[in-house]
């Protein structure tokens, strides 16, 4: 509910991440993955989103780039993906926060107003993404595995089989978790609609 001061930069919630990795090492892995994903996301080109490329691509590219790094020597692919999912979430939420802050502060000259309000398009997804991030935290309090399922599948691009392996549950559990969690999150983002 309340603003969270980037708790996922630390590795406080270590679900799905091997305990064999020491905390400091994990922090290093996380920040390495974070930087790589931010770079990759920043390089997404105009035509990619329409090309139906999944987030798997970003995570996979990050893996190819980082797999030989000494920090990742003990990390299996599924665990890498779990870390990458969290890092991806953080990259996007951080970007959304920056963008919101930018809009509120300083640069509200004519250009800025033009960018935000012209030709009747809906506002961008910044606010919705920040809300989603908070709603996932709330979901984690209701059912932590479901929050992980959302994180892995949406932000990490894990498929049902991979998520089931990572979280040690059956595929049907993942499918149910995903559907229920997604519906609840979507309704939490639009509380006034649909009832």
């Amino acid at each position: 509910m309340q603003d969270d001061p980037h708790p996922r930069h630390s590795t406080g919630r270590s679900d799905g991440i091997p305990p064999s990795l020491q905390r400091r090492q994990l922090d290093e892995v996380f920040s390495q993955v974070y930087e790589e994903l931010r770079r990759l996301a920043g390089a997404v080109r105009r035509n990619d989103p329409g090309a139906n490329v999944s987030s798997t691509t970003l995570v996979h590219e990050a893996w190819l780039k980082l797999k030989d790094s000494p920090h990742l020597a003990d990390t299996s692919v599924p665990h890498f993906k779990a870390i990458a999912a969290r890092a991806m979430r953080q990259v996007l939420v951080d970007a959304a926060r920056r963008r919101v802050a930018q809009k509120r502060g300083g640069k509200d000259d004519a250009i800025q107003i033009t960018l935000d309000e012209s030709i009747g398009l809906a506002s961008s997804s910044d606010a919705e993404l920040i809300e989603l991030d908070r709603a996932i935290d709330k979901l984690a309090l209701m059912n932590s595995r479901q929050a992980q399922v959302v994180e892995c599948r949406f932000f990490g691009g894990l498929n049902v089989v991979e998520a089931a392996t990572l979280l040690s549950v059956s595929e049907s559990v993942i499918e149910r978790d995903w559907r229920a969690a997604k519906a609840w999150l979507a309704s939490a983002l639009r509380p006034a609609a649909g009832s």
Binding site: V44, S55, E128, L129, A183
Partner: peptide
């Protein structure tokens, strides 16, 4: 509300992550 959202499939979560990444940092 959940059934309605499930039917609509229009939340951020139904959108590809890549288009979101593109919008946020692309």
């Amino acid at each position: 509300a959940m059934l309605a959202a499930d039917r609509r499939q229009t939340s951020l979560l139904d959108r590809g992550l890549l288009s979101l990444a593109y919008e946020m940092v692309g």
